[in-house]
């Protein structure tokens, strides 16, 4: 490799340190009632948001979050060079329909629940590489659109197992720029697809934990950093079980993250909210980063954090055909200078 920006096997180092100059997050009522409720820009009173279907509601939430992120950056739409978005729905309609009113060049992405970091990494690369001054990146999910696509109709009376997770309703969007104030993006580690044969679609944390483990381990190997260089290493939506598994596997590999490892899916809901293993969905990492984590960074509570968004790359068809669940995790390092 001739470029100087790649470090080790899977990591890139941003030499011009793209900045996150604004974030925006809009969430549903359940997320608003959770422990992080006050960090989100807007909490809806219901999941349908005055629309005729949940899909329309998700697109509307996403669209307004994008508008808000641009507005909070003090910019206008015509200043934005590229828009990078993704979601969980078939053919990523939530994103595609959300952006159709924006006159901004658009790249649609799919990385299941890892989409937020996938979008942020690519946006940072565009900015760092000199291809753009301002890139807006975001991801969204909606409990009811995901539920009816991946599992059961919402009114069907079924008992969810303890390993099941609750898809977050909400969208998180960031503006990444060459200039401006805000924390820097310094590294990104792009994950490979990992599949250890887990098949249970009601236990995605266990399917994704090996991918998170692999990416985190690879990040430290590539950068020669140690966990002590980070104030927080936070995964996207492993849930309680996935987080425990990741911590255990990293320990076996000689990396002790006790007290450093958190999970957006565990933080976003309280135990009282009956979500079992925790939150999930693209919106989970997206809203927790855009709301809570960005706030903690700009308030200098954290100096350097690593966000590792995890994605379970299954579909209802692959599940029914008895396939295992391939998973992926992408990491991005954000720090104050």
């Amino acid at each position: 490799m001739s470029g100087t920006k790649k470090v080790g096997k899977q990591t890139v180092k941003f030499t011009h340190q793209p900045k996150i100059i604004s974030t925006a997050s809009i969430v549903g009522p359940k997320e608003g009632e959770g422990p992080l409720g006050r960090y989100f820009d807007k909490v809806l009173t219901d999941n349908i948001y005055g629309e005729k279907s949940w899909e329309k509601a998700e697109s509307k939430i996403f669209k307004e979050t994008i508008e808000l992120a641009i507005q909070k950056a003090g910019l206008t739409e015509d200043k934005i060079d590229f828009l990078l978005c993704g979601d969980l729905l078939n053919q990523t309609i939530a994103s595609n329909f959300a952006v159709r009113d924006f006159p901004i060049p658009f790249l649609g992405l799919y990385g299941a629940c890892s989409t937020m970091v996938e979008a942020m990494v690519l946006a940072a690369m565009l900015v760092d590489g000199g291809f753009a001054d301002y890139v807006v990146a975001g991801a969204s999910s909606h409990h009811d659109t995901a539920e009816r696509q991946y599992r059961y109709p919402t009114e069907q009376g079924v008992q969810r197992p303890l390993t099941a997770q609750w898809t977050v309703t909400g969208a998180g969007v960031v503006t990444i720029a060459t200039e401006g104030t805000g924390p820097n993006i310094t590294y990104a580690t792009i994950g490979q697809v990992i599949d250890l044969g887990q098949k249970d679609a009601d236990n995605m944390g266990s399917a994704m934990a090996p991918a998170a483990t692999d990416t985190i381990f690879q990040h430290f190997k590539d950068t020669n950093h140690s966990p002590d260089d980070y104030d927080l290493i936070i995964t996207g939506d492993l849930g309680k079980l996935g987080k425990k598994l990741t911590q255990e596997m990293l320990k076996q590999k000689g990396l002790d993250l006790t007290g450093k490892l958190e999970d957006c899916g565990v933080l976003i809901y309280s135990d009282k909210q009956d979500v079992h293993s925790g939150g999930s969905g693209c919106g989970c990492a997206a809203t927790v980063f855009s709301g809570y984590l960005y706030n903690q960074l700009t308030n200098k509570k954290y100096k350097r954090i690593m966000l590792v968004a995890t994605g379970a790359l299954l579909s209802p068809t692959s599940s029914q055909q008895g396939e295992s669940i391939p998973s992926i995790a992408h990491a991005i390092v954000v720090e104050n200078n």
Binding site: Y152, P153, T154, E155, Q156, G157, V158, Q159, R160, D274
Partner: peptide, 27 residues
């Protein structure tokens, strides 16, 4: 209401014929 009952009762509300009705109306 039935999905709330189902969350609590599991098979208790799936197996009776009312659960059969639930599986028709919900989709």
């Amino acid at each position: 209401v039935y999905d709330e009952i189902g969350k609590f009762a599991g098979a208790g509300s799936i197996v009776p014929i009312t659960g059969f009705a639930n599986s028709i109306v919900s989709p």
